[in-house]
Protein backbone atom coordinates (compact mmCIF):
# COMPACT_ATOMS: atom_id res chain seq x y z
CA UNK A 1 0.00 0.00 0.00
CA UNK A 2 2.73 2.32 1.01
CA UNK A 3 4.42 1.44 -2.27
CA UNK A 4 1.51 2.62 -4.36
CA UNK A 5 0.44 5.71 -2.53
CA UNK A 6 3.73 7.52 -2.67
CA UNK A 7 4.34 7.45 -6.43
CA UNK A 8 0.69 8.40 -6.99
CA UNK A 9 1.15 11.44 -4.83
CA UNK A 10 4.35 12.18 -6.52
CA UNK A 11 2.81 11.88 -9.97
CA UNK A 12 0.01 14.21 -9.09
CA UNK A 13 2.47 16.71 -7.68
CA UNK A 14 4.57 16.51 -10.82
CA UNK A 15 1.56 16.92 -13.07
CA UNK A 16 0.61 20.01 -11.14
CA UNK A 17 4.14 21.32 -11.43
CA UNK A 18 4.13 20.76 -15.17
CA UNK A 19 0.76 22.45 -15.56
CA UNK A 20 2.09 25.43 -13.63
CA UNK A 21 5.25 25.47 -15.72
CA UNK A 22 3.25 25.36 -18.94
CA UNK A 23 1.10 28.26 -17.77
CA UNK A 24 4.21 30.34 -17.10
CA UNK A 25 5.70 29.43 -20.46
CA UNK A 26 2.57 30.37 -22.42
CA UNK A 27 2.16 33.56 -20.43
CA UNK A 28 5.73 34.72 -20.97
CA UNK A 29 5.55 33.71 -24.62
CA UNK A 30 2.44 35.81 -25.10
CA UNK A 31 4.07 38.72 -23.31
CA UNK A 32 7.17 38.45 -25.47
CA UNK A 33 5.08 38.56 -28.65
CA UNK A 34 3.22 41.54 -27.23
CA UNK A 35 6.51 43.30 -26.49
CA UNK A 36 7.69 42.64 -30.01
CA UNK A 37 4.48 44.15 -31.42
CA UNK A 38 4.89 47.19 -29.18
CA UNK A 39 8.48 47.60 -30.31
CA UNK A 40 7.60 47.38 -34.00
CA UNK A 41 4.50 49.49 -33.49
CA UNK A 42 6.46 52.30 -31.89
CA UNK A 43 8.94 52.37 -34.74
CA UNK A 44 6.23 52.30 -37.39
CA UNK A 45 4.28 55.09 -35.68
CA UNK A 46 7.48 57.15 -35.53
CA UNK A 47 7.32 57.91 -31.82
CA UNK A 48 9.86 60.43 -30.50
CA UNK A 49 13.44 59.03 -30.55
CA UNK A 50 14.19 60.08 -26.97
CA UNK A 51 11.28 57.94 -25.81
CA UNK A 52 11.77 55.05 -28.20
CA UNK A 53 15.42 54.19 -27.49
CA UNK A 54 15.19 53.67 -23.71
CA UNK A 55 11.85 51.86 -24.09
CA UNK A 56 13.29 49.47 -26.65
CA UNK A 57 16.29 48.78 -24.43
CA UNK A 58 14.03 48.07 -21.42
CA UNK A 59 11.81 45.77 -23.50
CA UNK A 60 14.89 43.98 -24.76
CA UNK A 61 16.23 43.45 -21.23
CA UNK A 62 12.87 42.08 -20.08
CA UNK A 63 12.76 39.73 -23.07
CA UNK A 64 16.27 38.45 -22.35
CA UNK A 65 15.27 37.89 -18.73
CA UNK A 66 12.15 35.97 -19.81
CA UNK A 67 14.22 33.92 -22.21
CA UNK A 68 16.82 33.06 -19.56
CA UNK A 69 14.55 32.55 -16.57
CA UNK A 70 11.49 30.89 -18.09
CA UNK A 71 12.59 29.22 -21.32
CA UNK A 72 16.08 28.29 -20.21
CA UNK A 73 14.95 27.47 -16.66
CA UNK A 74 17.29 29.76 -14.78
CA UNK A 75 14.51 30.35 -12.24
CA UNK A 76 14.70 26.69 -11.22
CA UNK A 77 17.02 25.35 -8.54
CA UNK A 78 20.70 24.67 -9.18
CA UNK A 79 21.35 27.60 -11.49
CA UNK A 80 23.08 29.85 -8.98
CA UNK A 81 26.55 29.36 -10.39
CA UNK A 82 25.62 30.04 -14.05
CA UNK A 83 23.66 33.09 -12.88
CA UNK A 84 26.63 34.34 -10.86
CA UNK A 85 28.96 33.90 -13.82
CA UNK A 86 26.57 35.58 -16.25
CA UNK A 87 26.01 38.57 -14.01
CA UNK A 88 29.73 38.77 -13.31
CA UNK A 89 30.53 38.74 -17.00
CA UNK A 90 27.80 41.30 -17.72
CA UNK A 91 29.18 43.55 -14.98
CA UNK A 92 32.69 43.44 -16.43
CA UNK A 93 31.34 44.10 -19.92
CA UNK A 94 29.27 47.01 -18.61
CA UNK A 95 32.30 48.44 -16.84
CA UNK A 96 34.24 48.27 -20.09
CA UNK A 97 31.47 50.03 -21.98
CA UNK A 98 31.23 52.76 -19.32
CA UNK A 99 35.01 53.23 -19.58
CA UNK A 100 34.90 53.53 -23.32
CA UNK A 101 32.06 56.03 -23.27
CA UNK A 102 33.24 58.21 -20.39
CA UNK A 103 36.97 57.85 -19.78
CA UNK A 104 38.36 57.85 -23.31
CA UNK A 105 38.39 61.22 -24.97
CA UNK A 106 38.01 61.33 -28.73
Amino acid sequence: MAYNSKPAHHEEYQRKQHREEMKHQVLTFALMILFTFIAFGMVIMEVDTYFIIPTLIILAIVQVAFQLYYFMHMKNKGHDMPALMMYGGAAVALLTIITFTTLIWW
Binding site: F100, I104, W105
Partner: peptide
Protein backbone atom coordinates in the same frame (compact mmCIF):
# COMPACT_ATOMS: atom_id res chain seq x y z
CA UNK B 1 41.36 55.97 -34.21
CA UNK B 2 42.55 56.31 -30.64
CA UNK B 3 45.74 54.85 -29.20
CA UNK B 4 44.35 54.95 -25.63
CA UNK B 5 41.88 52.17 -26.48
CA UNK B 6 44.76 49.69 -26.49
CA UNK B 7 45.94 50.84 -23.07
CA UNK B 8 42.50 50.42 -21.54
CA UNK B 9 41.90 47.04 -23.12
CA UNK B 10 45.35 45.85 -22.14
CA UNK B 11 44.98 46.89 -18.51
CA UNK B 12 41.37 45.74 -18.16
Amino acid sequence: GNAIIWEHLFWI
